[in-house]
């Protein structure tokens, strides 16, 4: 298989397969979860919780209060940089926008390539520090299992291969591009079945937490 065939394979059958698994996996996992039901609230609530749920979904994107920030600043800063970098380079890089448009039918303006480049570097750097942190911070070292390192790798590779492809480092561009796409496809395939699914489930998590707290009159 030459690199063109490889590239065509990742752009064609492999992509279709990965998308299918992603969609299938997400549907399956959401249904699995939804059928578990939720207990009914009989207490006299202070609010119905809807606004609070929405607020928590959004508010946890914002930096936490100083006390929390002080204690967990590293994971917060590096986590922000990684996530922001990942999403900016994913959603605001022109070729990705075209891809998303072809899949979703909507389009938006992108950022210049050099900006994406810098953001990617920052994101990569953040990820590496997060990995080092995972090795050295006792809590993370204690908590981390195979899945954590796997997830890290799968999230790291698209950024990394994207960066290498963009700069033509190491391998010919089409091959690197193919590896980049493949890395995304692996991410897509694995996502529904690992903690990477937090990309979607965090909404439910934040929602239920926020809504329950809001019913008690607390904003979390």
């Amino acid at each position: 298989m030459n690199y063109t065939e490889f590239l065509l394979w990742v752009r064609g059958p492999a992509f279709h397969f990965a998308t299918a698994i992603l969609v299938l996996g997400l549907t399956l996992r959401f249904l699995e979860m939804l059928f578990l039901g939720s207990p009914r609230q009989y207490a006299a609530v202070r609010s119905n919780g809807i606004a609070g749920g929405i607020r928590t979904v959004i508010s946890r994107f914002a930096p936490p209060e100083p006390g929390v920030f002080q204690r967990s600043w590293f994971i917060i800063v590096a986590g922000y940089l990684f996530h922001l970098g990942f999403f900016i380079s994913f959603f605001l890089f022109a070729p990705h926008i075209i891809l998303l448009k072809s899949l979703l039918g909507v389009s938006w303006p992108g950022l210049p390539a050099p900006v994406i480049n810098i953001i990617t570097i920052i994101s990569l750097f953040a990820m590496i520090t997060l990995l080092i942190n995972r090795w050295y911070y006792p809590v993370l070292r204690f908590l981390s299992d195979f899945e954590d390192y796997l997830s890290w790798t799968l999230a790291f590779l698209p950024l990394f291969t994207g960066y290498l492809a963009f700069h033509h480092i190491w391998l010919p561009y089409p091959l690197m591009l193919a590896l980049h796409i493949l890395s995304v496809e692996i991410l897509m395939i694995v996502l529904p079945f690992t903690k990477l699914i937090h990309t979607f489930t965090f909404i439910i998590a934040r929602w239920t937490n926020g809504a329950r707290a809001a019913q008690k009159g607390v904003q979390v």
Binding site: R11, A20, I98
Partner: peptide, 11 residues
């Protein structure tokens, strides 16, 4: 960057 046709069917 657009995948080859077939994604919609797969999805």
């Amino acid at each position: 960057s657009v995948p080859l046709t077939g994604t919609a069917t797969a999805v």
